[in-house]
């Protein structure tokens, strides 16, 4: 069912942005760390590399900011942190997602034989 697959891929892509932002709420993280966090949840990140164009875009939209920090190993790492705008965008997403999720669940449940 290629049509369903494409729809799910698009959905996942859109949702991934907010998942990344949500992972940055507790602390700033570097790219590789984010990939590992997302990899723990099955089905969220299909190709690890695609997170980098996403992060770059979030930064250009000023939803996240970056900062280089020295790692314990002595090499610099690019850390991403949530900006105030990012925080607001995430808060608004959380509200809408809750509504949307229960709406879809409700309808899917009703359609079950």
């Amino acid at each position: 069912m290629p049509c369903v697959d494409a729809a799910v891929t698009q959905m996942r892509k859109g949702l991934l942005e907010y998942c990344v932002m949500a992972l940055l709420v507790s602390a700033p993280r570097y790219g590789y760390e984010l990939v590992n966090q997302l990899a723990k949840v099955d089905g969220m990140l299909t190709t690890e590399g695609t997170i980098y164009p996403l992060l770059a875009r979030l930064r250009r939209d000023r939803l996240v900011a970056t900062e280089w920090r020295e790692s314990s190993g002595g090499h610099p790492r690019k850390y991403y942190r949530l900006t105030i705008e990012g925080d607001q965008a995430l808060a608004s997403f959380r509200r809408q997602w809750a509504t949307l999720r229960s709406a879809v669940d409700e309808i899917l449940k009703g359609g079950k034989p």
Partner: peptide, 13 residues
């Protein structure tokens, strides 16, 4: 930027 991010990722891995 993307090439650097990918190189850093490979380095971390």
């Amino acid at each position: 930027e993307l090439v650097q991010d990918v190189r850093d990722h490979i380095g971390e891995s």
